[in-house]
Write a protein that binds this DNA or RNA. Sequence first.
DNA 1: GTGAAAGCGCTAACAC
DNA 2: GTGTTAGCGCTTTCAC
Lengths: 358, 358
Amino acid sequence: MAESPRKGQATIEDVARAAGVSRAAVSKVLRGAYGVSPAMKDRVTAAIEELNYRPRVAARAMRGASFTIGFELPDFGNPFFTRVLAGASATLSDTNYQLIIAPAEPDARERQGYRALEALADRQVDGVVAVSPLVSQDWLERLSSHTPVVMLGRHDRSSHYDSVVGDDTAGARAVMRHLLDLGHERIAHLTRPEYVTTPGSGTPHALRLEAYLQCMAEAGLGDNVRVARCQEGEGFAYAAAAELIADGEPPTAIFAAHDELAIGALRAAAESGHDISVAGYDNVLIAAFPRISLTTVDQSGEQMGARAVEMLLSRLAGRQESIHEVITPELVVRESTHEAKARRGRLRLAPTTVPWRR
Amino acid sequence: MAESPRKGQATIEDVARAAGVSRAAVSKVLRGAYGVSPAMKDRVTAAIEELNYRPRVAARAMRGASFTIGFELPDFGNPFFTRVLAGASATLSDTNYQLIIAPAEPDARERQGYRALEALADRQVDGVVAVSPLVSQDWLERLSSHTPVVMLGRHDRSSHYDSVVGDDTAGARAVMRHLLDLGHERIAHLTRPEYVTTPGSGTPHALRLEAYLQCMAEAGLGDNVRVARCQEGEGFAYAAAAELIADGEPPTAIFAAHDELAIGALRAAAESGHDISVAGYDNVLIAAFPRISLTTVDQSGEQMGARAVEMLLSRLAGRQESIHEVITPELVVRESTHEAKARRGRLRLAPTTVPWRR
DNA sequence: GTGAAAGCGCTAACAC
DNA sequence: GTGTTAGCGCTTTCAC
């Protein structure tokens, strides 16, 4: 069926013949290994040039390293990952490792991430960075027993793999504190489906939800708790938020679990005509756009990506003990919550006492 | 240094031993090849399961196929590529090919794409889809002599590689016609640096620029031609547009070479206080957001991604003749140009006769 | 229906 | 300083 790939391409053998040396000699030149005379090196380099020779990574990988770092990502639509990728890519550009990205199947639900991670491992990457909150710890530890793994956004600690994660609880609490300080009492939370927020699972979205619930309770607003859920995507967030707003007394604020959802909520809020503050999470690029101006939490994806790659490299260099690094997020206040505040100040809304749910 | 990867992982040999058969037998079961008794198949499958065996792609690739499709992409920040990726990914999900993405180094300028494409080829992907308008045709033909290649967004035809490309001339002309119909005379074009728009190079941005120039000339507005340039990124576009607006008599419309630039221009226009229509290209998701509502050209990235993958698969299945497919784009009119139209209609602006440049 | 054996391109230990 | 050689894990004739 499929023919042998790279047919007709020069091999190390061809180069050796052309240069009149042994394969081992060529290999040494290639790897800059010790024990080659300058004269031979020149001859070999010339032959490589002339034959347009490039070493096959597959053959290389069979013996040692593939000089490839795998990156597993869910959902390319989420621009936060663009930031992460930029950080990773920049850090890697000084090395001779190549970055390879495997997208997780979007509709895999609970199984999300397994296939892509396996695909990377099967391709013998030297290390893997992954964003897979849903993959089981057991499975990950098995994976990391043969391939170094750095997890992004996991709060669990493992002695087998490293992790870098934002402090989601702190970030979410900062948002809630901000909204509560503004005087909001009917604050809703828009998040993803249950399987992403399983209590105790420690996923970022589970923690953000818990922080929301806790802050509401602490503020004596436990009765006003209202959680809406939707699939990934601005469109779904819009629909869910619209329903939330139309169904019963509308919230005065919506805390969305991430910016993409927040933007959908913003759209629904604007269309509804109600004065609704909206906050998100991630500080996606577009959040700063004036006509959106979304209050959100900055996570420095660049830094997270960069740190993840650094950890991988230090693992490859022999580090044994695992690292669990927590990045402190920062609240970014913008108009999506200001505007309402201003109006609210002017109108001096009387505090609602009726429980708000439904 | 780096130890042999996958140490301790089961090999085909281990499976064979556990099942009490030969390696060849296991291989046959793996590939569903002809000539295996059901009994043996069961034993082998059980052994695979038990040992948690997974075939190494690298070893496989040395003999035949790697069942991997490589995707080379510049600039992850551009959400248009998200659409392309979605289409490609969906098409591939029914096959047993795995999608692997290699990002091009962002700051490589003219050299952009070479490194990432080589990295993919070195990793023995069975085929490559690439967005590399700047790579030379010669080089691509050499590449495609051993690895099937489908190019996205190239207008040149080759008998060696396939291509799928939007009709940039038609799309840009549609935008210009729309702006001219609205009565605009001082229309500026915001595009990327010279090396991306070299006249005659046939890159999408070169064609959009040429269409702009031609339409201006045809409308007798040759003297009003004004081209601003900036690096990739909303921030750079903002700065360039702001300068464009501040420097001399401001344009009444800006045609940006793609949506990300258009959004920067939109921001600059809004801040300037002038009434400036803005149009983009690509119909990125956020363009539809009400507070942005950007007039743009839809290219169906999903369709392009899907077609590219289909072409690759048919190549792998043995197709010989090359295909060059042109996708017809569609103008999407939104408020970013409507608003101005309405106002312009009301105000009945007298046509400017003074040449506008500077 | 099954297994033995050759070889894909490369690296690294070892001999010269 | 240079070459010989034994595999890495897999597929694929070709005998049995």
